[in-house]
């Protein structure tokens, strides 16, 4: 069946092609179904149900275990700044603050660098260079977070303490974000280590998004006398939403990151304007206090933080995947 698409071209109706690839359901011809088919279908179905059930159970379990805390503190949990296990007073704002600041700091540094890498890999590098280089950058993503943390403690933090922070303090110390004594451990170190961890994600997905822009776009801009960079700028404009998706995926990763951050952030529940000061993230407080929590309210409060973390990462990841999916599908 042929239809005229809005672009004035004649093409087969989209639905028809979708029907052809519907697998088992389209091909069941005989009325007497083979026993094997039934068994197979229901066996796999059971596992799919298990997955669905698993997620629902997870959500329920976290909610149920955080209920005491939710009931006791309500919305004050999110705005409270004291986290006092002794007095049983729990306010999660310092951790939310720490998570947001460290993640956004990481993204802020990662974005321009990732764009540069993506542009280089997609538009500039010859294929003999691009493939090994892409592989190396993706290797960064495969390093376990604990190894990042280890490197963070013994290499990054001393460097931050002896080189970066004095430098920033010396030249830009009047800014509130660079005030204070250089400890090394703190928000800046956390932001830096997260930046290295999310760089490969944002860069490789941006690269894929750029590659998905049809070649005809590049030719169109070059043909009217654009320079290579001007042509790339137009491609970047085209790929905007996909790149945003890549950033969100990186952000999602940074928000949920635990070990590397815990090892360098200083683990102090404080809200401070200065990046030099230590902080605490939602993931870190769970990691540090979960095994030490003695009262059920303490555990409940930690569960509530886990629930919060769960919800935030889900929302961010959902948006991210939607944007990236639509940006990379267009090439087809």
């Amino acid at each position: 069946m042929l239809v005229e698409t809005p672009e004035g071209e004649i093409s087969p109706a989209v639905g028809a092609s979708r029907g052809v690839t519907s697998r088992a359901s389209a091909l069941k011809a005989s009325p007497k179904r083979n026993l094997g088919d039934v068994v197979f279908k229901y066996t796999t179905l059971v596992f799919a149900v298990v997955v669905l059930f698993l997620i629902l159970l997870m959500a329920y379990e976290m909610y149920a275990d955080s209920k005491p805390s939710i009931l006791k503190f309500g919305w004050g949990f999110l705005t409270g700044t004291t986290w006092d296990p002794v007095q049983e007073n729990y306010g999660a704002l310092p951790f939310v603050f720490g998570t947001i600041v460290s993640s956004f700091l990481a993204l802020l540094i990662a974005l321009p660098l990732s764009l540069g890498i993506a542009v280089f890999l997609s538009e500039m590098a010859p294929s003999w260079l691009e493939r090994p280089l892409s592989f190396l950058i993706e290797l960064l993503a495969g390093i376990p977070s604990i190894v990042y943390g280890l490197w963070g403690i013994f290499v990054l933090v001393p460097w931050v303490r002896t080189s970066i922070e004095p430098l920033l303090s010396g030249h830009l110390g009047f800014l509130p974000i660079f005030r204070g004594a250089p400890y090394g451990f703190g928000m800046l170190a956390a932001g830096l280590i997260l930046f290295v961890m999310i760089l490969p994600i944002v860069a490789s997905i941006s690269r894929d998004v750029l590659k998905a822009v049809p070649q005809s776009q590049r030719e169109a801009s070059l043909a009217i006398g654009a320079t290579k960079w001007e042509s790339i700028r137009l491609i970047l404009k085209d790929a905007k939403s996909g790149i945003l998706g890549a950033c969100l995926l990186g952000l999602g990763r940074a928000i949920g990151e635990t070990m590397a951050v815990t090892m360098v952030i200083g683990n102090t529940p404080a809200i401070s304007a200065s990046l030099f000061d230590p902080g605490y993230t939602m993931a870190s407080v769970i990691a540090n206090e979960f095994t030490e929590a003695t009262t059920s309210m303490h555990i409940s409060a930690l569960f509530e933080i886990a629930l919060l973390l769960f919800l935030i990462t889900i929302i961010v990841n959902m948006f991210a995947r939607l944007l990236v999916w639509s940006a990379t599908r267009r090439k087809l």
């Binding site: 997955v51 997870m58 976290m62 999602g252 949920g256 990151e257 973390l309 990462t313 990841n317 959902m318």
Partner: peptide, 12 residues
């Protein structure tokens, strides 16, 4: 739901 699950941080 599987997509949702893939975004879950490891600590959770």
């Amino acid at each position: 739901m599987t997509e949702v699950l893939s975004g879950v941080p490891s600590i959770v």
